[in-house]
Design a protein around this nucleic acid. Structure first.
Lengths: 244, 244
DNA sequence: CGGCTACTTGAATACTTTCAATCCGCGTGG
DNA sequence: CCACGCGGATTGAAAGTATTCAAGTAGCCG
């Protein structure tokens, strides 16, 4: 199933940059394939050399780092529209992996190199950097949470952030519900806790009527309280995201 | 004291990209000023709108985020050659501050906008993204340390990483010694620990003859052992860094 | 029906923080 | 020249927070 960029439904979402016809043509020449992978399989493996850039089209994935002792840290949760593999494409090799946590489909962009893109389309290049810098803002918040947040704050923050990112992509169900395929283990690896403790915190959050995760769905009962508890505020989205 | 880019001594260091004469000319047109700030003062304050891009020329600074309750998280340690303020320049406003921890001098680059740079000099633009992506690799490692590392690992990793970054800049003294103006509190805020605990870990590291911090100087006694304990490996420097 | 993975719960343990007291070096002002 | 105040560092003890270990439940797939 090859989806031409011209008829891409993701591109139309409000978070993403509108494209001029020229830009769209350019991007179309980059897309070389569209692939699917099953849950739990690696899209990029630690140590891979080079490789294409992808755009996550459908499904969820995580960027994660394996530590020596069998534990792992989830560095980021990847949602539809997110770019995957720029690091390995630009730097040659990386220390993290990208793993699908649900069935996933991806646009493969190896029609042109990044260098060529920068040469030929400065606006698009700038949008990529801008998106990247925006992601760094989100990373800063994650760092602060891991360094200084309590267990409840870490998990609550992740919930709210993920909810908002889904909302920007038009993927929330009603007003308070969204898909949430992360298991306790995923949450633990993302927040630097043990899965046992995550389970306890989740129980507490249910107890306190803040939020519930059940059957792959997140329900936020009391967003205001949760945002207050976690000092959450959404990252300012100045630039609409580049999507390739 | 205005230092023209053509005679900039930083630029000559091995970590940095060599410049063509044309690029150097271009960068020269961006540099508009050279300023100094005292230790403990903010270079960029949370919430600032817009603002110039800087290059840290001399001294140490940190990028940090104030949490609601008076605690703070150091997001990154900034060393000479590092770019400061790209986020606020591109996104308009940010949630972190940048604070000098020693006396600092900075190149001020507001001669041209980032958009103009991307339009007129694709190679330089690409080098900026490349440097940025490299920094993200370092951030990934910090995230993993905060999430999964023990206290000793967090601090040891920071020491080794900082040592190597200084070495790349030609700022290490002998084979095992480098300047290290971070106090216990700085280390605590960077590693997500209390300063009391940092002091204990530092005492342990001295006890075990791994490393010592004293009088603003770091001495790494046993790099191999420390690297082993912290699973440290330097970030692969594929691209030499862009400096503006 | 196994056998698997995910989840839950309890108890013991380990790591880290908080609180409190003390010490040290340094610059200021009398 | 010395007392004073201050920030940074150290140390001990008590209190929390989160982990590990262990056992058991529930749902799902071959």
């Amino acid at each position: 199933m090859f989806i031409p960029c011209a008829s891409c439904s993701l591109r139309a979402k409000a978070v993403f940059r509108p494209f001029s016809g020229e830009e769209l043509d350019f991007i179309s020449t980059m897309k070389s394939d569209h692939v699917t992978v099953r849950a739990k399989t690696d899209i990029i493996r630690r140590g891979d050399v080079g490789g294409p850039i992808y755009t996550l089209f459908e499904g969820w994935a995580v960027r994660l780092m394996d530590l020596g002792d069998g534990s792992q840290q989830i560095l980021d949760v990847l949602l539809p529209g997110d770019m995957i593999g720029l690091e390995s494409a630009m730097l040659g090799t990386v220390k993290h992996s990208v793993r699908a946590i649900t069935p996933v489909s991806l646009c493969v962009l190896e029609g042109r190199s990044v260098a060529e893109l920068f040469d030929r389309n400065a606006k698009l290049a700038l949008a990529i950097l801008q998106t990247r810098v925006e992601e760094e803002q989100r990373t800063d918040a994650r760092l602060a949470m891991l360094g200084r947040g309590s267990a409840l704050q870490r998990i609550g923050y992740l919930m709210l952030e993920t909810y908002d990112r889904l909302q920007q992509r038009g993927m929330v169900n009603g007003g308070t519900t969204c898909p949430f395929p992360l298991t306790r283990r995923h949450l633990a690896d993302a927040s630097g806790l043990s899965s046992v403790h995550v389970a306890r915190i989740l129980a507490e959050m249910r107890e306190r009527k803040l939020a519930v995760v059940e059957g792959g769905v997140l329900i936020v009962f009391d967003r205001a309280a949760l945002a207050e508890l976690t000092a959450y505020s959404p990252v300012y989205v100045a630039a609409r995201r580049a999507i390739l």
